[in-house]
Design a protein around this nucleic acid. Sequence first.
DNA 1: TTTTTTACTTATCAGTGTTAAGTACAAGAT
DNA 2: ATCTTGTACTTAACACTGATAAGTAAAAAA
Lengths: 218, 218
Amino acid sequence: MGEVVITTGGQTRGDRVRAASKQRRSLQKQELRRLILAAAAELFLEHGYEHFSMRQVAERIGYSATTIYLYFEHKDDLLFEVVSDGWQRFSDDLLAAAAATDDPLERLQAMGRVYVSFGLNNPAVYGLMFVQRTDFLMHENLHSKGKPVDLFVVLCDAVQAAVDAGIFPPGDVVGYGDAIWAGVHGIVTLCPSLFDDERRQRAVEIVLRMTLDGLRAR
Amino acid sequence: MGEVVITTGGQTRGDRVRAASKQRRSLQKQELRRLILAAAAELFLEHGYEHFSMRQVAERIGYSATTIYLYFEHKDDLLFEVVSDGWQRFSDDLLAAAAATDDPLERLQAMGRVYVSFGLNNPAVYGLMFVQRTDFLMHENLHSKGKPVDLFVVLCDAVQAAVDAGIFPPGDVVGYGDAIWAGVHGIVTLCPSLFDDERRQRAVEIVLRMTLDGLRAR
DNA sequence: TTTTTTACTTATCAGTGTTAAGTACAAGAT
DNA sequence: ATCTTGTACTTAACACTGATAAGTAAAAAA
């Protein structure tokens, strides 16, 4: 039987009910997706990359393991979403540090300190981004603002500014950037079992002084 | 029945046969152990840390998987033996570089280059030593000569020599060492998927110049 | 010749990522 | 109100993983 046609701008009551129902269920799906993501992030922080499992995520939120596959293509997809959030925070921090001062040298120092801070305060996420799954860095779905490549450009811009100001000698700007990056990355990842944070903090300052002074034109 | 006693210095023929047999079987065991180790090293290089499995090792040499457990306590034990060999080569290289010259700065440069070379030429082993399984560095069974701690001491000695020679200013020698280590370690581990070897080579030279010049007394 | 030891294998357990098939219920159509 | 379709989820299963216990055939020792 045809439904009772009470037209309201070409839309029947049935149409509106259908649309509302559809939207409600869509919201429920989104909510479960967020629930999975939150549980995944928690468990990742608790157990680390190597002992992170789909089944545990499912168990924590009270669903069967296969349900997750209705919301995420595969484990990597879920992990990527986890890291994606961490990446956003990282790039926010770094961009803020870069924007805080106009002095080229101070800017580079600030960026270096923020970089290391993030790495030491978020070791699991940092590891996922820059150690275990560097392939994620090339993932196209990484938030448009603050892509890894863009952040490296920000670093190189800061280096270029130092060159322009006559602080660094003209030369291989990208190479300078690589070297600075290597320094801070080295600090963050150097043998977590051997170095305590205090020793790391001392090392950061030395690395910053060394790298930046080392480039300094004489 | 008692054996025919043909004494030869208190040793019966039976004793000698027994001893020889025992030795022969002991040699066979050693040989199989080496075979397992060789296969493990191969497969580790082929498949990397994450996809290295006991069953594959067993299959390659034509034994059941459980046999390996008669020769190695567990997977970690086998992996440790693999890395142990790599570690020996690494420390040989580094000590040779340190002994090659008396000039403090040249020595540090040489050590840095050798460090990075080893890392880039043996990425799997380097990763096992300094990234995935840094806990192995504290393993007591690491060959007595060239322990990680000893190598760091060698580095610090070189730094101290530079300080004594008036090249570096007096200060936190261990911190200097950490910083130099962080630099070369950073180069080796920086996003393998993003950097080709050519770009890395340029970065090494810059890092060495930066770190060493940066420490230089003015 | 009988017993014991050695070297190895098969069967098994608990866990992993992932897919296919099945199920219960809600939505939509007539 | 009934029938059909689709949605959201589950159970069962596959092919792996590290690891252990129990079993077996042959060699050594008695």
